[in-house]
Design a protein around this nucleic acid. Structure first.
Length: 136
DNA sequence: GCCAACGTTGGC
DNA sequence: GCCAACGTTGGC
């Protein structure tokens, strides 16, 4: 089992929309590194769902339900999508600001390469984030 | 709205 | 193959 994080502008595709749609196709990825990460996702892998823009934060947890297949929205090029579904909304948002303050999380791709929209998350990082959620 | 970081494009 | 120019992302 692997752990991931996907970023999205809430105006483009929000957590609320994911909950409303249920199983959703994660399309529109047009970055090779992000695409390659999509292709490494396996069914049942867990995906932290991150809102970028105003009040950047992890807001919920999703799950991969269908492994990669060609992106039907791509007019050209070799692009992929996966299907995800919402697992649960976090009981509170874990903000970028507080993630930055946790020493153990300083190597997260989220902080090291803030522009990568589909990124791996280490097991230790994942567990730490869940612990953070329980605090406060 | 600004700007840093990163990716892509295209001339040479 | 290098690099300047440009476009995009995303935090602030």
């Amino acid at each position: 089992m692997n752990y991931w994080l996907v970023k999205t502008e809430p105006a483009t595709f929000s957590w609320e929309k994911l909950e409303k749609e249920g199983i959703s196709m994660w399309d529109g990825v047009r970055n090779y590194q992000a695409r390659n990460n999509l292709r490494k996702m396996r069914c049942n892998d867990l995906v932290l769902f991150y809102h970028s823009g105003k009040n950047p934060a992890i807001v919920g947890l999703a799950e991969v339900v269908k492994e990669h297949y060609p992106d039907p929205t791509a007019k050209e090029g070799d692009w992929s999508v996966v299907d995800i579904r919402p697992v649960r909304k976090f009981k509170r948002n874990i903000t970028l600001q507080e993630i930055k303050q946790v020493k153990i999380l300083e190597n997260m791709v989220l902080l090291r390469n803030s522009r990568l929209s589909v990124q791996p998350v280490g097991l230790g990082e994942y567990q730490n984030l869940l612990n953070l959620e329980q605090e406060k």
